[in-house]
Amino acid sequence: MRREDGAHQGERRFALMLTAPGMLALLLTTTFPLAYLVWSSFQTINLAMPFMDGFAGVQNYVEMWHDSRYWHAMGLTGIYTFSSVALQVVIGMGLALLVMQIPAGQWIFRIVAILPIVLAPVVVGLFWRTLMLAPNFGMVDFLVQWLGFEQINWLGAPTPALISVIAIHTWQWTPFAFLVFLASLASLPGDVYEAARIDRANALQRFWHITLPLLRPAIIIVIIMRVMISLSAFAAIFAATGGGPGTASEILNLYAFKTSFVELNFGYGSALAVSLLIITMAVSGVLFYLRTPRRREAGA
């Protein structure tokens, strides 16, 4: 008993030795700055007016509560996250189902799908802003007019700008959902589908009763990962619209960023970032709670 304890003691010490550098690095690089962020959210830090700096108490948060631009950004974050994730999952799933049916050439789709994923979001934002959406130059603009529709100022008018940034995000990340679903579909047992065909389930019924339930874990994982990425989206919007026109596409990330680095109001920017942090943590908490499988029949 005692000797065994000793052996485990050695293992524990070794394990601690292996994890310590990584954990210490995480503590220093993430937790310490976050603590600093929380601290600075209770300060007035304005690089434009350094003479005002000092302890502010909850004043930044009070201000935030009454800040209509904050609530606007919050609403846009919700719309942006929800719609882009929903689109990614639906389109990605549809595309994966489609490509699974194709007898040959699946590899082309896999290669093409990897391209948007590996591109820098800032470059994606720039490409869309210039080559695709720019008035009288971009291909989308050209296509819209060629089809006989009225010209739309994609990035210069409020609603089209919001639609555009959602579309850009969806364009870049749908391949992610597609690839995950494709891999999941490929790993499903074939004989189960044959059994379903013999049991007279048609294609739609097979999808509804077999595919969807079996893909549930993959769908949930994709939703979790995509929500997280959506909530921290920055570069593509920043490059495409900069949050504009006005605040039409200014999600919380951009508002916090601009408050800090454009208006140089770091205290208030910190408070905005803290609220974003809390929202992100709450959303991830809920998603992970949903994800944990719960037995429907206890004890079975």
């Binding site: 047992p189 004989d191 189960v192 044959e194 059994a195 379903a196 065909r197 013999i198 007279r200 009763h209």
Partner: peptide, 16 residues
Amino acid sequence: PADRDIAMVFQNYALY
């Protein structure tokens, strides 16, 4: 298969 009125037991059972 659906038009053939058959039932089948698979080697690996193919249960859902």
